[in-house]
């Protein structure tokens, strides 16, 4: 393909000028699903990149999701498990454990939760690991959980310990993304999403649509949460649809 050669040209030119080098063994190509095999191999050869992209990670997050999302997010659970395992042989006070859990274990999934809605199963598993660590007194042995984890999530004034509910926190983060969409509609992300999913309406009324991506589905969950806490301020009345159901309760 012609454009492939053009890209190759650009890359080598840039490499020469800046002294940088593309690491072909770590780079990847990702083709459209219906690109023919012969073109694929031709392009691979010209660019000298032989990895297939799509199932790797971009900026630390999975690029693409199939049907099995739990497997894809399993790495977070493993990370949390590894971390708490290391802490088990330390004899820490309850206060120490609390700080460790809140500052590290509960913070680990946050980056992924910024963009995606973690499956319920993953959240539960992380919480289980955390609560196991909290109650265990001897390494390698399970212990009695004297208080339900649900109650530990209450704030300290309410008699809990203020551990975060991962699922709810996830929703909150996604709501923040949705808010960004609403607030800077001209940023690149907002433009991309608007072009793809709601060309003629706004975030608040956009629907999932057909063949939507997992990221968008996640974002809509955040949007729904956002809607609960929002109300319209009547201005010139341009953006309000008088017949829509949502306005009547507020």
């Amino acid at each position: 393909m012609k454009s492939c050669l053009a890209i190759k040209d650009i890359l080598t030119q840039y490499e020469r000028a800046s002294g940088q080098k593309v690491n072909t063994s770590k780079s990847a190509l990702h083709f459209g699903k219906r690109v023919q095999d012969t073109t694929k191999t031709a392009i691979r050869r010209t660019l000298d990149i032989h990895n297939d992209g799509g199932c790797n990670k971009y900026l630390g997050l999975p690029e693409q999701f199939g049907r099995k999302k739990i497997e894809l997010f399993q790495y977070i659970v493993e990370k949390v498990r590894e971390k708490t395992k290391g802490w088990r042989n330390k004899f820490l006070s309850h206060g120490g454990k609390e700080v460790l859990l809140k500052a590290i274990a509960l913070a680990m999934p946050v980056y992924s939760m910024n963009c995606y809605k973690l499956p319920k199963h993953i959240c539960e598993e992380i919480e289980r690991i955390i609560s196991q660590y909290w109650w265990c007194t001897q390494p390698e042995r399970n212990a009695m959980h004297w208080v339900a984890w649900e109650r530990m999530k209450f704030s300290k004034e309410e008699g809990g310990l203020g551990f975060r509910d991962i699922g709810k926190f996830n929703d909150a983060l996604l709501a923040k993304q949705a808010w960004r969409l609403l607030h800077n509609p001209e940023c690149l992300m907002a433009r991309v999403l608007r072009g793809r999913y709601f060309p003629n309406s706004n975030v608040l009324v956009a629907s999932i649509g057909s063949q939507s991506s997992f990221g968008w589905q996640s974002l809509l969950k955040g949007r729904d949460l956002l809607k609960k806490g929002m109300r319209y301020i009547v201005g010139d009345g341009n953006s309000i649809q008088p017949r829509a159901k949502t306005h009547q309760s507020g």
Binding site: A28, H30, G32, Y58, E63, Q64, V192, R196, S213
Partner: peptide, 23 residues
């Protein structure tokens, strides 16, 4: 994520396009 998703499901994209990740 959106682009890669489009490469998979959108007919117009999946015929002719590709994405390159360079390291």
């Amino acid at each position: 994520h959106e682009v890669i998703h489009a490469l998979k499901v959108k007919k117009r994209c999946s015929n002719l396009y590709m994405a390159i990740k360079t390291d």
